[in-house]
Design a protein around this nucleic acid. Sequence first.
DNA 1: GATGCTGGTTACGTTGAGGTAACCGAATGC
DNA 2: GCATTCGGTTACCTCAACGTAACCAGCATC
Lengths: 123, 123
Amino acid sequence: MEWNIFSRSCPSRTSLAQIANKWTAMIVISLVPGPARFGELHTRIEGISKKVLTDTLRSLERDGMLIRDDGCYALTELGRTLEEPLKALQVWAESHIEDVLDNRDRYDSAADEAILAGIPRAS
Amino acid sequence: MEWNIFSRSCPSRTSLAQIANKWTAMIVISLVPGPARFGELHTRIEGISKKVLTDTLRSLERDGMLIRDDGCYALTELGRTLEEPLKALQVWAESHIEDVLDNRDRYDSAADEAILAGIPRAS
DNA sequence: GATGCTGGTTACGTTGAGGTAACCGAATGC
DNA sequence: GCATTCGGTTACCTCAACGTAACCAGCATC
């Protein structure tokens, strides 16, 4: 079978949606060093609510990326194959953020100037 | 400066949220072979609406990952550094989807059986 | 100058993701 | 027995993401 994320209703797109997700990335990365308890994850991933944490954990458990044993979560073999790609996203985000912040500033101030100059719309 | 996606209000988390996104992934991957026009992207990425496509393109342009030249979009140097990590997500999603689908089936039917057996709740 | 195509924008409605806070059962401590 | 912690669940609400459809300016075509 040819799976293709660009195809409107290919199941692989739902899988992409699951892994291309900041909470998924943070949970998986948090579990790389070893299993962790619910409370530990809740502390490490600052700002995540208990609801979202449980929802995301259940969803990852359903897809077979982690297993739960009485409040203790561990990556499965499948989950471990996500370590490298998701870690790469973390590294990218942290190492290029200054660039990105600069670009945003430039973009926003250019937009402001265009408004002040009375240019009605980009063409 | 120490950027850290796990820190509640670190800007790098907003950057992670932007790149850990299915539309971002599909757009960037679509632009790897070379610049493309709006209509081409709209066709290649099946099921994306014009609104979401324009919104996502503007957002990526703002962050400096692509540039627009009269309806033609091209990755910047920064955007090209995303090629590898995002391509990895596509490959993962497409190559592990059968596994994931099996896991979902197993999880869902186990849940059904638990209900039929009268087990009130997982503990 | 009407018709159509491209690359959008706008207004509007729906859905889903996510936050908050209260609650709860089981285990542990005093 | 009572309070506390842990690992959730539940109800409720908000807001951002997304879809739909109509509209529009610029340009080319005939």
